[in-house]
Design a protein around this nucleic acid. Sequence first.
DNA 1: CTAAAACCTCAAGTTAGGTTGAGGTAAAGG
DNA 2: CCTTTACCTCAACCTAACTTGAGGTTTTAG
Lengths: 152, 152
Amino acid sequence: MLEEANWTVGKVAKRCGVKVSTLHYYEELGLIRSWRNAGNQRRYKAEVLRRISVIKAAQKMGISLDSIKRAFSTLPDNRTPTKNDWQLLASGWQRELNERIRYLEVLRDSLDSCIGCGCLSLTSCPIYNPDDIAGSQGDGAVILTRNAQSES
Amino acid sequence: MLEEANWTVGKVAKRCGVKVSTLHYYEELGLIRSWRNAGNQRRYKAEVLRRISVIKAAQKMGISLDSIKRAFSTLPDNRTPTKNDWQLLASGWQRELNERIRYLEVLRDSLDSCIGCGCLSLTSCPIYNPDDIAGSQGDGAVILTRNAQSES
DNA sequence: CTAAAACCTCAAGTTAGGTTGAGGTAAAGG
DNA sequence: CCTTTACCTCAACCTAACTTGAGGTTTTAG
């Protein structure tokens, strides 16, 4: 630990390409953590860089900060996450990503045939009701499936 | 035209699985149109059902209402859109959808190898900078590419 | 004919994911 | 030492896509 964690909010922001306010916000949400120096300024350990990168990557997959937070909660609390910890987390997202990709593929493939026909408004049209794709409903891994139809 | 357009907002809402307030909202945005009966109540022609279905389908693809509106503006104004009109519109979205799918596939494929390594924060990592995927930047069809990195 | 259900408008509220700004303190460079 | 840059907090604002509610009118069913 020669390289004692010494990242300021400004440096982290610059390195990660986000704004300082975003880091404040993420901290408020509990996505990242910092401690304070004598003058009440935030200090981070290098680990935060990976966290932020992962947040950004997950967002690009369409995962909400809330879900990311839940995923992060599976990371060890007491020690810096290892490569393995991150890969475990990633594997969960990979499944979701696959579902999402399948979903979009069905949408794409139905698009041409369905959009011109009269079936769109029917409950059997794959464009209008592609919810079946991600298996049944209810429990387990419904992070990406969320944006499916929400009958109120 | 035996079946003269006679849809009330409530019927449309029920048929399409959206709320009445959503229809008001879409109308306000210029996504759908209605005329009023003697008592100032909205009446729709059947065409609106397809429009709403298409809106919903497009939203599932990740397309914003604003983009949908722009896409709709390519539909004929003077006559009810034909199957062909709709398919033309759909084909544009299909391209975008393909790009999006490719994007997510790259993300997925990079996920395992990258998330555990140290490269995430570097500008060369495909997870952190997959923007290159959708070709260059600038003009043309950048609807879905919008959620890429936005360096401020 | 009357009561319930459906509609109307308009303003304000909601969630996600941040951003902006004011007013004030800390740290860093010359 | 002093000025500039970086930080701090907290509240308010922003966009998208709707939803809710108040107060009032129209339709429809019996």
